Simulated assay, not measured.
Amino acid sequence: MTPRVPKLKYSKDELTRTWQSASMLMDYPDQNLLAHLDLLSQVAATLPAKLGARLQATIDHLRARPLRESESDYVDTFDNRRRGCLFLTYFSNGETRKRGLALLRIKQVYTRAGLTLTDDQLPDHLCVVLEFAATIDQQAGLKMILDNRAGLELLRLHLREIESPWTGALEAVCATLPPLKGTDHEAVERLIAEGPEEEQVGLNPYGMPDLLPMPGGA
């Protein structure tokens, strides 16, 4: 059964181009990514400005920096900080048994769609989810993203806080989603105050004004 998800402002093709571009830009930087930056820039130019300009900001950062610097920045941003975690179910479940069940459910969605992950890929990695949503099953992928919206928003706030080069790519994704509503705000505020479940890590400092919906997010 096709999951029921809200209708979005942008067309299916615009979502595909945005999500696939963001998936590539937010993956670990390597020579292959650098070789595709011109193509990604061309794609960004075809998108509405509220999406394309954000993608282009990340493209420009990656283009201007030596690869070794981007590699080091990426590890510092995403691998060594819980607030920069790219694994979506971590925010909603922490390191608990419930997270194992959440991963299994996502993997089952992939299996039904005919997608087989390699041994080094976890199903809830943001880049994997975005690629799946962009190229295989947009509705099922969107549901995964929205089910983990609080964690995605917390990651966006973190990237903005540290002025990360990857902020633009993630904000492009968030701009394709519906504005945050009351329950989403509550979930983000809870994560800020308490951290992921059964973790003793505070997620401050983040100010509540940053929880306003992103411009162009509707």
Score class of each variant (00 low, 15 high):
E14C: 12
D73Y: 03
R83L: 10
L40T: 06
R65W: 14
A44K: 00
S164F: 01
T111V: 07
V201M: 14
R81K: 03
A45M: 08
Q31C: 06
T183L: 04
K12I: 13
G182F: 06
L170I: 10
A57G: 11
V188I: 13
G168R: 11
A45T: 11
T77I: 15
A169M: 12
L122R: 13
A172P: 02
V5S: 03
L88C: 05
G207H: 06
T111P: 00
F78R: 00
A22D: 11
D119W: 03
L154P: 06
G168M: 15
E14D: 09
L154Q: 14
S164Q: 05
A53S: 12
A49E: 06
G141L: 08
Q20M: 14
P179H: 10
H61C: 13
M208C: 10
P48G: 11
L117S: 05
L51R: 00
A175V: 15
P66D: 04
D124A: 09
A44L: 06
V173T: 08
N80A: 09
L103N: 02
D79A: 05
Q108T: 08
Y28Q: 11
S21D: 05
R83S: 11
T96I: 15
G84T: 13
E189L: 15
S70H: 04
S164V: 06
G114V: 02
N32R: 15
Q200S: 12
L146M: 10
G195F: 08
V75T: 10
A53I: 13
R82Q: 12
D119G: 10
V188K: 03
C127P: 04
Q56D: 05
A53Q: 03
N93G: 15
F87S: 04
S21W: 00
L33H: 12
D210G: 05
A134I: 05
E153H: 05
E71P: 03
Y28L: 09
G151L: 03
L51F: 02
G94V: 11
T16V: 04
I59S: 08
V109P: 00
P48C: 04
T16F: 10
H158W: 11
A102N: 01
M26K: 01
P179A: 02
L47N: 02
L40Q: 00
F91K: 03
G202N: 10
R156T: 04
A22E: 07
G94I: 07
Q20W: 09
L104K: 12
I192S: 07
L62P: 01
E197H: 02
T2Q: 15
Q56R: 10
E131T: 07
P123A: 08
E171M: 06
L159M: 04
L88P: 02
P196L: 13
P165T: 06
Q56L: 14
